[in-house]
């Protein structure tokens, strides 16, 4: 489905705003996420030190630096702009899989790879396409990690965010507003991990002692969705 199919093209009454996501927007999203991870690296690591093994911020920063390097390399080759959104999402996913390690590598890698598969060959995605792609990515990460809601994992931020985005798309919200609500849902999901007892990942070894701490994976997932809400609409100037 293209932007035109959604009736958001010129002359359909939606004004001059472009309501579709391009490769350039994905690049902006990844750069914003990389900046957020670098800024919050120590915070993520401290959260992980409390209930895990104190490497989440370090691993995510290494992975996002690798993604930035890959994007720069594509840019140097003149290959950043052309091609499908899905292909670029898959490139980011493979880079994360081969650079992050730990549990976060396969999980974020699978999230981006599955988003890329769902996005297909299109050069731009409508809000509805994008919401479907995110939902596919979240399902992929959930299948990879075999986590359920309330297991105190990144799934607790990702699932509500994907659901909010799909609801926003269905109810005709603007792209910016739908992304904002999706990020807000991720934030609520992240905050809701605090009282939970972990049932997956290294934090689960702590049993009851894992309660009272915010999950580091849910926190980096919120950063990812928050970066989407800030970076994606920024590219939608008339």
């Amino acid at each position: 489905m293209t932007a035109a199919d959604q009736g958001t093209g010129p002359g359909d009454g939606s004004g001059a705003r472009r309501e579709a996501i391009t490769r350039g927007d994905v690049v902006a999203w990844m750069r914003a996420f990389a900046a957020a991870v670098a800024r919050d690296r120590d915070h993520l690591t401290e959260l992980d030190a409390a209930i895990g093994d104190a490497d989440h911020g370090i691993n995510m920063e290494r992975g996002m630096q690798a993604v930035l390097g890959r994007l720069d390399a594509l840019d140097a080759l003149g290959e950043l702009a052309g091609g499908g959104v899905g292909e670029l999402l898959k490139t980011v996913g493979m880079t994360l899989v081969s650079s992050v390690g730990g549990a976060a590598g396969p999980l974020y890698g699978t999230l981006l790879l599955q988003m890329g598969s769902a996005a297909g060959q299109a050069s731009e995605l409508t809000l509805s396409d994008w919401a479907s792609a995110l939902a596919a990515g979240v399902s992929g990460a959930q299948a990879r990690g075999k986590a359920e809601l309330a297991d105190k994992t990144m799934i607790d931020a990702l699932v509500p965010a994907a659901e909010a985005l799909q609801a926003g798309a269905a109810s005709g919200l603007s792209l910016a507003e739908a992304l904002r609500q999706s990020a807000a849902a991720a934030q609520r999901g992240m905050e809701a991990t605090v009282p939970l007892v972990a049932r997956k990942g290294r934090a689960s070894y702590l049993g009851e002692r894992s309660a009272g701490h915010q999950d580091p994976g849910a926190t980096s997932s919120w950063l990812l969705l928050h970066a989407a809400a800030t970076a994606l609409p920024a590219g939608l100037a008339p």
């Binding site: 104190a54 490497d55 691993n59 899989v97 081969s98 992050v100 390690g101 730990g102 549990a103």
Partner: peptide, 9 residues
């Protein structure tokens, strides 16, 4: 892998 981090696929 990196320290205390599993190797990558």
């Amino acid at each position: 892998g990196q320290i205390f981090t599993s190797p990558t696929p």
